[in-house]
Amino acid sequence: MKFEVDTHTHTYASGHAYSTLIENAQHAEQNSMKMFCTTDHASSMPGAPHYWFFINQKVIPRFLSNVAVLCGVEANILNIKGEIDIPLEVDNHLDWTIGSFHEAVLRPADKATNTETLLNVIKNGRVDALGHLGNPNYDIDFETVIACAKEYNVAIEINNSSLKGMSRVGSNERCLEIAKIAAEIGAYITTGSDAHFCSDIGQFQFASELIDKAGVPASNVITHTTAQFLRFLTLRGKPYINAFHALY
């Protein structure tokens, strides 16, 4: 399956990534992306920026290197209540919010606790997608979490970086199971490169193969086209973005 949107990318502002936003945009164009979300880590991650960084993303042009740019964040899940590490006042300044488990912020717990945490993240209504759920360090009840995500229109991420075997080792089989369950129940799937270096923007070889193997229909993959992605944002209650009129 081909994708026009990359919904998970980092700049050096995250503290452990190595490219600028302009470099990311240039490589997004080179790798045939029509749109990408810039999603640096929120402040609980060591080295990550203050929340004002995310509020001030309004200064970013809507197009860089002929590629549409959405302003987002990869927020850290903080506790079993499903709280994330950005103040409520930031939400209205963001186009896209990913919520993810990170070992540096919240230590893995047992399966029941991890599952309850994600259910609360979904129900709190502040995240548009759940990041890299295949991480074997955070065991969860896939069916329960994905069914809840479908009910609340939260996308499930298939993270290409997790499938490369360099981080979150052991994610491949789990991600395939996640994708199969999502396909079966009709949940929304998003694809993120999770690029921490510009050349990885829009690189989806492993995610594409896995999604095809799982039999996920293109209609459920919100990154398949810009129009699908922008319609999903509308479904999430996000405002219409006039600058992207031609992409809807």
Rank of each mutant, 00 (worst) to 15 (best):
198 C>H: 10
154 V>K: 05
107 R>Q: 09
193 S>P: 06
235 L>P: 05
168 R>I: 06
98 I>C: 05
166 M>C: 14
137 N>V: 00
28 A>Y: 03
164 K>L: 13
237 G>N: 11
144 T>E: 14
22 I>R: 15
36 F>V: 04
237 G>F: 06
200 D>Y: 12
108 P>M: 08
205 Q>G: 12
39 T>I: 01
2 K>D: 07
65 S>N: 14
85 D>Y: 03
195 A>M: 04
192 G>N: 00
72 G>E: 01
101 F>K: 05
176 L>T: 09
24 N>K: 13
65 S>E: 11
47 G>E: 02
75 A>W: 00
13 A>Y: 05
120 N>Q: 13
176 L>D: 09
89 E>G: 12
29 E>D: 13
20 T>M: 10
10 H>I: 02
243 A>V: 08
97 T>C: 10
236 R>M: 10
189 I>L: 03
238 K>D: 12
183 A>Y: 00
13 A>K: 07
181 I>M: 08
208 S>P: 01
92 N>W: 03
73 V>T: 04
217 P>W: 02
247 L>C: 12
96 W>F: 15
177 E>H: 12
67 V>H: 09
151 E>K: 15
246 A>R: 14
170 G>S: 12
158 I>H: 08
111 K>S: 09
37 C>V: 14
144 T>A: 15
165 G>R: 08
6 D>L: 02
116 E>N: 14
144 T>C: 12
222 I>E: 04
221 V>E: 00
225 T>P: 01
123 K>W: 12
109 A>R: 09
79 N>H: 03
129 A>F: 00
170 G>I: 03
247 L>I: 06
193 S>G: 08
37 C>N: 01
121 V>P: 10
183 A>I: 01
121 V>H: 10
248 Y>P: 13
126 R>K: 15
30 Q>A: 15
134 G>Q: 03
201 I>F: 07
215 G>S: 11
112 A>W: 02
191 T>K: 01
170 G>W: 07
114 N>T: 06
69 V>Y: 06
191 T>H: 00
203 Q>L: 07
201 I>E: 04
101 F>M: 08
142 F>C: 11
54 F>Y: 07
177 E>A: 14
163 L>W: 02
41 H>M: 03
225 T>D: 01
143 E>G: 09
122 I>A: 13
115 T>Q: 09
91 D>R: 13
205 Q>R: 09
89 E>M: 10
19 S>T: 13
27 H>Y: 15
146 I>N: 10
106 L>N: 04
109 A>Y: 04
28 A>R: 04
225 T>Q: 00
82 G>E: 04
172 N>I: 09
7 T>R: 00
187 A>K: 02
176 L>G: 12
228 Q>T: 08
235 L>R: 14
104 A>T: 10
81 K>Y: 12
96 W>P: 11
